[in-house]
Amino acid sequence: MLKVRVIPTLLWKNLGLVKGVGFDSWRRVGTVMPAIKVYNTRDVDELILVDIAATVDQREPDYQAIEELAAECFVPLTVGGGIDHLETIRQLLLAGADKVAINTAAYAHPELIRQASERFGSQCIVASVDARLHEDGRYECFSHCGSQPTGKSPDAWCQELEALGAGEILITSIERDGTMEGYDLPLIANIRAAVSIPVIASGGAGNYAHLCQAIQESGASAVAMASILHFTQQTPAEAKAFMAERGIPVRNIHVQY
């Protein structure tokens, strides 16, 4: 049976690991390399590493730094931030990324998703979508690290991304991000219903029960999280034990060594 993935998200800015609230007020929470080593030994299912300043600073990813990080990572690594060309993706894959997450560039150049999935395979293209809930109950996608409205509704945009060839959707709730109040369950359920590719829930995880909700109530294939790991004593291993007790298939716990 395919296991539900528990995925720490590492947000990276100027070589430091940061975490904010609502895509703002970033706090430095450590350095990236020790975090990757710790997550490896704890057997997380995957890692997402996003350079949150790359697009805003209009620069390419730091390939050298990513190569050094990837060399220590023996679980699948998704790298995002500042990806706007096929050549950027090629360089990231050479540097040791297994998948890339594309967000802002997809709005201006949807063809990038198509070309990237044709060249590198859908399985390596994660479409990352940041959505905000307006007071009138309407959701809207935002680009540039949550700073610019796009006028697009998340479910329609995710369908478009799937049709262009994206292999997975990483859906993040902007206002839940960093609050640890739980995922935006209706948002995730909407995306789950809108597309047939796997959906990774992101934004708001604060305890193990939140992870279960995203999976059991909203149908997520994977749960991404950050603050819960940075600011509490909760761990990916405990999260998986908790999920397993509630009937969610997780990796490796039934196998005898």
Binding site: L2, D45, I197, N252, V255, Q256
Partner: peptide
């Protein structure tokens, strides 16, 4: 869902093949 993404079980059929030595049934 397709793509098949994530950790899934591998169940050896040919337990004697050297490639699968010490790979227990159901390893992810």
């Amino acid at each position: 869902r397709i793509p098949h993404v994530g950790w899934n079980e591998v169940h050896p059929v040919d337990h004697t093949h050297p490639l699968l030595e010490n790979i227990h049934a159901g390893s992810d």
